[in-house]
């Protein structure tokens, strides 16, 4: 994960004919974290998808170096498979060994659930499974969309620790949330400031 970097320059996002935000600048070096805040519909998830390259930026440039791992509202695990097997498919695509997957399961306190079919897991357990996939990926850049949703207090602490470890190891984290997260992020980006009308008023 050495040399992970993420740089957004003057990024704008147009969705369904509506400009969600524009003029977003963000520069993250290894060990850098950013927290995207704002009410529902302000464009947090869209910005994360722009960072991931899944959505083209309407304007501006996105530069990435390093692999990307993302967790959003979609589980993307085979529902009928046991949790360990469903995660193993992604670990193989990420060329992560069984040790790394086991460590990720342990970090999210999922080891006792490894043989439970994914469809039997609760909301919070599913969220933790997605976070375990992010941890096991070994990617330098983590993009987390509402990572705290559905997590209880103990799980939130696990999330905070995983993010802190990742940042300490020189990774990058961009997390979007409408609620406070136990994540130490030096940069906070309030997306309401980048709404087109807000930008006009500032100019």
């Amino acid at each position: 994960m050495n040399g992970a970097a993420l740089r957004l320059t003057d990024v704008a996002c147009l969705r369904g004919g509506r400009m969600l935000f524009r003029g977003v600048d963000l520069k993250l070096e290894p060990g850098g974290g950013a927290l995207l805040t704002g009410p529902n519909g302000v464009g947090k998830s869209s910005l994360l998808r722009v960072c991931a390259g899944l959505l083209p930026a309407f304007a501006g440039t996105v530069e990435r170096s390093g692999d990307i791992a993302m967790s959003d509202e979609r589980l993307a695990l085979d529902m009928e498979a046991p949790l360990a097997k469903a995660l193993d498919f992604w670990a193989r695509l990420d060329r992560a060994g069984p040790d790394r997957l086991a460590a990720a399961l342990a970090a999210m306190a999922l080891t006792p659930l490894a043989q439970v079919p994914v469809r039997m897991l609760s909301t919070g357990q599913r969220k933790r499974a997605m976070l375990a996939r992010v941890i096991a990926s070994g990617a330098g850049i983590w993009l987390l969309d509402e990572p705290g949703n559905g997590l209880d207090t103990a799980s939130l602490a696990l999330l905070g620790r995983a993010v802190a470890d990742h940042l300490a190891a020189g990774g990058i984290v961009v997390a979007a949330s409408h609620q406070p997260l136990p994540i130490a992020a030096p940069v906070t980006l309030a997306l309401t400031d980048y709404r087109p009308d807000a930008v006009d008023q500032a100019a």
């Binding site: 390259g53 899944l54 692999d67 993302m70 979609r74 589980l75 993307a76 695990l77």
Partner: peptide, 14 residues
């Protein structure tokens, strides 16, 4: 596509 599996594969550069 709905479960996000295609997006997760795309994230891995495939």
């Amino acid at each position: 596509a709905q479960a996000g599996i295609l997006d997760q594969i795309a994230l891995r550069g495939i």
